[in-house]
Nucleic acid binder design. Structure first.
Lengths: 334, 334
DNA sequence: TTGTAAGCGTTATCAC
DNA sequence: GTGATAACGCTTACAA
């Protein structure tokens, strides 16, 4: 690996002049600067980011913590993060936590020793304890879709507008003349579930429709939850004509169960999901859903982080936590 | 950020003693070592990986280059890589290339300046030019499913056994008494396609069945290719009773088209894919396929890289490129 | 405009 | 056993 000193020797100048020249400092003669740059290129020089970081105190690296990158939702978000980071000369250190406290701690420790300038955390649920550890890194932190609503001094959250998305879904169903609409919940205690359900009730109220408790059934965010939910709903004296599901995985469980029971979709039952996971377009029938702009959320999170890292601590005044809009994707399940 | 010197001051020793104590060197009195370690913990010390790297010459970081992490296949592989890396105290620097030469170069440059100890590349196709740039990093490189069969001095490839997987698929269909079996190809020039097709022909030959050119139709690795392939096959005087597809995306295109044309699957046409992408289990009917052990391939690639990084250049003798076995997953499309 | 020297946080080589 | 001291590759005062 050739260094700044090698170039200095080859160009017959001091290494500090080389350092200046390579960073286009005005403090160096234009001619020698070009000469030095030419030599550097010719010798195949690449600056050592770590050495630089050691003196500047900034690593130009951000840590990205995920439960698992194998989650397609997470992967798309991370792609948005990485693309933006790359555009701004930042590198991304990926760290999986597997939602296991032990690995979570290891991840934080690693990011600390790497001296990352900021951290983005994408996990459906961020434990309070864990969050406090992340904050102890002393660098800005941006959470994505944090369902626990915690945030601390350095911590910001980018999230989808669950209420707006829920209204979009309900408006769609109501416009299709559905009047008996069910809601299948997600995992307990997720604020996103509360918000989507809130929109469900709100939409009904606004149309003067009654909100019937029997039409709200528990799911768990996975297909098997959707399956059980559909069975419960079909057991009602007066089953719904449409279902708004907490998320796509739940809706997919519903879809499969409906097919097994020969319930025609959307004729007998319309189904709307939430998330727009890649699967949604490929199930049968293709699922109508509320898309979360995953890539954009990643971009936005990284953009915020760039601001925060630049500004240092945002002198007293906290930025607001951005909320992005969901988008109705009409397919064939409604 | 507190340093080794801060601890030295607090513990009343020199910083070199602290350095030794923290790495459990035998060259330091057991009592003072414990005292120092206690102080370090109390002060919340975390070693600076970059400073360490500067002197040791090893960063304990590996670069992972992907076209896009949003590809579920890639994401699973990366999860395997990351998990293994973490277990061995290595961090993962993720770098997306988007298959764009410009970003590819930027990615390599970045990994170079980070002084990563090794690189793993997951892209369906690795250009010769690009590969030579990666190799110029001077660190071991492991490719995953490199379809171009190139490899250089530092370069190894982990790949799935396409031939064995293809035989698995064909054996399955032949066991189900299918005698008229078609093959839908992938993108041109991928060695994986050649190998899978080779297995197709081999399996037929072994049973003494004729290999009919009209039963081999071009796809492109995507659903629309599968769609066109099915249309072509159904136009034959004597259509096949089963199809082995280059990959799952192709098979999914076939499945959708079959439904539109009311072709019953598997009764009228059996379909087998390759890859076992997450979608495969969720399409209708769920797709029989040959699973690539993605997570394990990631683990294996990282394991190899660990060896290579430890050994330095494997003195003259090249390791062989590992080939992992595919696994038949029988679902409802056959 | 350029060079010298100090320092970033480590590890490693010496003496003591 | 321990402590100076140099070195890793870089940036940045401070001098010249």
């Amino acid at each position: 690996m050739i260094s700044i000193k090698d170039i200095a020797r080859a160009a017959g100048v001091s290494h500090s002049t080389v350092s200046r020249a390579l960073r286009d400092s005005a403090l160096v003669n234009a001619v020698t600067r070009q000469r030095i740059q030419a030599v550097a290129i010719e010798m195949g020089y690449t600056p050592d980011a770590q050495a630089r970081s050691l003196v500047t105190g900034r690593s130009r690296a951000v840590g990205v913590v995920v439960a698992t990158i194998a989650d397609p939702f997470v992967a798309e978000v991370v792609q948005g993060v990485e693309t933006t980071a790359q555009q701004h000369g930042y590198s991304v250190v990926l760290s999986g936590s597997g939602a296991e406290p032990e690995r979570e701690m290891a991840a934080v420790q690693m990011l600390r020793s790497k001296r990352v300038d900021g951290v983005i955390v994408t996990a459906s649920r961020i434990g309070a304890l864990y969050l406090s550890h992340v904050e102890r890194l002393g660098v800005p932190v941006v959470l994505i879709n944090n369902h626990n609503e915690q945030s601390g001094h350095y911590t910001y959250t980018v999230s989808v507008d669950n209420h707006q998305g829920g209204l979009l879904a309900m408006d769609h169903l109501l416009t299709l003349e559905h009047r008996r609409i069910a809601y299948v919940t997600g995992p307990e205690d997720h604020s996103s579930d509360m918000e989507r359900m809130g929109a469900y009730r709100r939409a009904l109220e606004e149309r003067g429709l009654p909100w019937e408790p029997e039409l709200v059934v528990r799911g768990n965010g996975w297909p098997d939850g959707g399956r059980r939910a559909l069975e419960a709903l079909m057991g009602l004296v007066e089953p719904p004509t449409a279902v708004f599901c907490y998320n796509d995985m739940t809706a997919i469980g519903l879809l499969r169960t409906a097919r097994e029971r020969s319930i025609r979709i959307p004729e007998s039952l319309a189904v709307v999901g939430f998330d727009d996971i890649p699967l949604a377009a490929y199930v049968d029938p293709p699922l109508t859903t509320i898309a979360q702009p995953k890539f954009e959320m990643g971009q936005l999170a990284m953009g915020m982080l760039l601001n925060l890292m630049q500004a240092g601590t945002p002198a007293g005044e906290r930025l607001s936590n951005p909320v992005v809009q969901g988008q109705l994707i009409v397919r064939e399940s409604t």
